[in-house]
């Protein structure tokens, strides 16, 4: 049971974060609060993606040329050394020694696009405040009905 919890608790916390964001998007009344909820939802999904690519005992996805790896963590260094010598003999790198770079690429672009779309959402919020004098959902709805 403890093994299961240690192996999965990361995923469970990501789901908790995602649900906090989703609930805020549904139930909060203030538009900026809704957008904060959207940001939390977004980062929870990014966290999930990045953690798919995580590997136990692997180092960052940058190939080290110096070989002695002076400024790496101790554990990573040990793994890296063993792997590197093996890899040099085989002529290529061992995939288990490096974190999967593919989710990083996807999420890196998603973060920047996320801030750009957050900017668009902010512009819409300012425009709503212009037109209706409020950024609370119920007041805006009331004024639309008038």
């Amino acid at each position: 049971m403890l093994d299961l919890i240690i192996a999965k608790f990361n995923y469970w916390v990501y789901i908790v974060l995602m649900m906090i964001g989703l609930y805020a998007m549904i139930a909060k009344n203030n538009y900026i609060k809704k957008l904060i909820g959207m940001t939390i939802f977004q980062t929870a999904i990014m966290l999930f993606y990045v953690s798919i690519g995580a590997k136990q005992g692997a180092t960052i996805p940058i190939i080290d040329h110096h070989g002695d790896g002076g400024d790496h963590g101790e554990a990573a260094e040990a793994v890296g050394h063993a792997v590197e010598t093996a890899a040099h003999a085989a002529g290529s790198l061992d995939p288990d020694a490096y974190v999967n770079p593919l989710p990083h690429v996807l999420m890196l672009t998603a973060i920047v696009v996320g801030v750009a779309t957050l900017g668009v959402a902010m512009a819409v919020v300012q425009k709503i405040h212009d037109q209706y004098g409020s950024i609370e959902e119920d007041e805006v709805l009331k004024r639309i009905k008038l």
Partner: peptide, 29 residues
């Protein structure tokens, strides 16, 4: 969590890790 042989880590990404330096001469994958 952190399983090196999960499906996401076994097919395409191994190609990136193994061959990126030979194919592009860029250490940062």
């Amino acid at each position: 969590w952190g399983d090196p042989h999960s499906p996401a880590n076994s097919y395409l990404s191994t190609h990136y890790i193994e061959d990126v330096e030979e194919e592009t001469a860029v250490p940062n994958m």
